[in-house]
Write a protein that binds this DNA or RNA. Structure first.
Lengths: 363, 363
DNA sequence: GCTATTTGCCAAAACGTTTTAGGTGGCTAT
DNA sequence: ATAGCCACCTAAAACGTTTTGGCAAATAGC
């Protein structure tokens, strides 16, 4: 197989010809203009003609060629999702949960997702390709880091995009995020209000903004309660770490004063539970639960206090925001996904009813 | 907002004009034919011309408009994946693992994945749309059932596709599958060879062919060992069942004679382990492990015997097979993903070395 | 009854490529 | 010298839509 095709080389050809707008026009004795305008619901075509066209289109099985449409309209009805291919993060269960929401939202608006992935160093090249070759109308960016280069790039190129999460520039683009700061502020206050003075916080990788914001929430709650930094032990699950919850919990419990642990995710809380039991300690556990639909974590519902949000809902909101930009030309805006509280009954949860102090509303 | 556009309605327009092949031609004083052929490596353009074109293309930032290419070539470099949207299966962790392989394979061949999802009853409509609107070159079908309508449809339409798994018609299309039958035949023989006479088999939903083939493997191993059906207890995890491994294990252990359990997945084996310990029983456990990269199951490696396969490898093989069909026009063929055995050391594993009887090679 | 407006339709251009079907000029072989 | 060939290049058609600009007939306004 030569890689420099000769002039007579035959490329593999696609499927055979479909019914086109021309066939319809010929069949009905109308112009293709009229067919097109009838099918697209323009007002300058008569009612009986519109009916005739619709009927013939159905009968003859006409389906518009999307690529011709995309060529002339410069709109694709495609949304890009570029997944970064770290051995682990590639298949992060959170990804699939968000994607489930995205797919539902996309379907509702008759969009498709164009999915691809590459290693972090080649990720931007894919963005560049999509931006320049008219493959997609907009982008969804997941798991931003501070000063994320993907975001700089898309801002530069002035393409529609929405970020799942927030970072420094978030005023300038559309985003959807859970209230990481507020939730962890409140989780911390909950434990403090219930007498805990030495708390461990087992967080995600603070390379990502979500984890950073969570730590800031914890930090500020501590400060607002008049406690010193000595009261908190922060441990981070950096990337390739299996069973992180177990390992970090074991580490945290070395400090005998620790009486409560805040986990960044229920999965880590479950893993950590094993370590707590093995150590024979009684520890108050609070966590943020992402409602991963493939795992039934209900058996743990009576062991942890948690605040829950729906990643699926976030996914749907991402697409909705992108629609607003692409279809209606709306200015980008930010959306916070709501959370619900599930404190354990033995706790005094009145602190959750108090609003956050005005200077503690975001990060 | 009216939904019947007037003739002067302005549709949201896409990004501004890029550099086209015409601009290149004008700049270099060549015809667009020559530009096109130079860029596509045809042999009837001079060496210095080719250089000039390549250089100018780079300098001017030329990127071919994919939609124009797709329109004329009728090839898209897109592969469709339609995910069925059951509340749970939508986010099945196996999906994302296979997808990781698919994405790597696609990237390698410069393809993208067009991803969408809908409820099972509207799934076929999406296939129909993709088949007729020139959005994709081929399809990947996951988790087939026996006589799967998606497969009938694609066979009828004569579109390239590859199935992850096998069913009745598999001789007529391309597939990639693990040796479900053989693996479970051997798992069963392993336990029998080590003295177990009452075995529970906790299987997936036999509505799917993979689970059916697994049960057939178990059944035949039993028969070949001269054991009656009384020796096996089959339990199925049907769809919306959280913590299925735990529940079904508890059920299975009601039979006090059970001394060994075969699980269809490591996740269920892990769940079941809790039930076994709670019952205070000593049970030999064997499972098939799908190597889910987001979960570190290595802590359990010394508790179960298992046979392992890589879903990621399967994903890459799916795309590779589709390429063969789309690019080279190769006839569809089937591929079995290899498995590796990890029997616990206290077991006599010699039975694993014996080949399957010739009449037991498939299902 | 005449003009102005609205209604319903259309021819042609445009989108940005690839492919078809050559054409030209120089070299080789006779 | 001339036929034949080869190396290099091109004009025009095609892919299947949407959009532009307009035109003719019907209706409304007076």
């Amino acid at each position: 197989m030569s890689n420099t095709p000769k002039r007579d080389d035959i490329r593999p050809s696609g499927p055979k010809r479909n019914v086109t707008i021309k066939d319809l026009a010929a069949e009905l004795g109308l112009s293709i203009t009229t067919i097109s305008r009838a099918l697209n619901g323009y007002s300058d075509v008569g009612e009986k003609t519109r009916k005739r066209v619709a009927e013939a289109a159905g009968k003859m099985g006409y389906r518009p060629n999307r690529n011709a449409q995309r060529l002339v309209t410069r709109r694709t009805h495609n949304i890009a999702w570029v997944q970064s291919d770290n051995d682990r993060k590639f298949v992060d269960p959170h990804f699939v949960e968000v994607m489930a929401g995205v797919l539902r939202g996309a379907r509702a608006g008759n969009y498709d997702i164009v999915l691809s992935g590459d290693t972090p160093d080649r990720e931007l090249a894919i963005y560049d390709r999509y931006v320049n070759d008219n493959s997609v109308d907009g982008f969804i960016v997941d798991l931003p880091r501070e000063d994320d280069p993907r975001i700089s790039y898309l801002l530069d190129m002035q393409r529609p995009f929405v970020v799942h999460g927030r970072e420094a520039r978030s005023a300038r683009y559309g985003w959807v995020d859970v209230d990481n700061y507020g939730n962890f502020y409140s989780l911390t206050r909950l434990l403090i209000a219930n007498g805990h003075r030495h708390i461990a916080f087992i967080n995600g990788d603070e390379h990502f903004t979500y984890a950073l914001h969570r730590r800031h929430g914890v930090r500020d709650a501590l400060a607002d309660s008049g406690l010193s930094a000595d009261s908190i032990t922060v441990l981070n699950a950096v990337h390739p770490m299996g069973n992180a919850g177990f390992k970090l919990t074991t580490l945290a419990l070395d400090d005998r004063r620790i009486s409560a642990i805040i986990y960044s995710s229920t999965l880590m809380a479950v893993e950590g539970n094993g370590a707590i039991q093995r150590a024979g300690r009684k520890v108050e556990v609070a966590t943020m639960d992402d409602e991963l639909h493939y795992l039934d974590l209900s058996p743990f519902a009576d062991q942890f206090s948690f605040v829950r949000s729906s990643l699926r809902e976030a996914g749907a909101a991402l697409v909705a925001e992108l629609f607003r930009q692409c279809e209606n030309g709306a200015a980008p805006s930010g959306h916070t996904v709501p959370s619900t509280w599930h404190p354990l009954p033995h706790l005094d949860a009145s602190v959750l009813e108090q609003p956050l102090p005005p200077n503690r509303r975001g990060t």
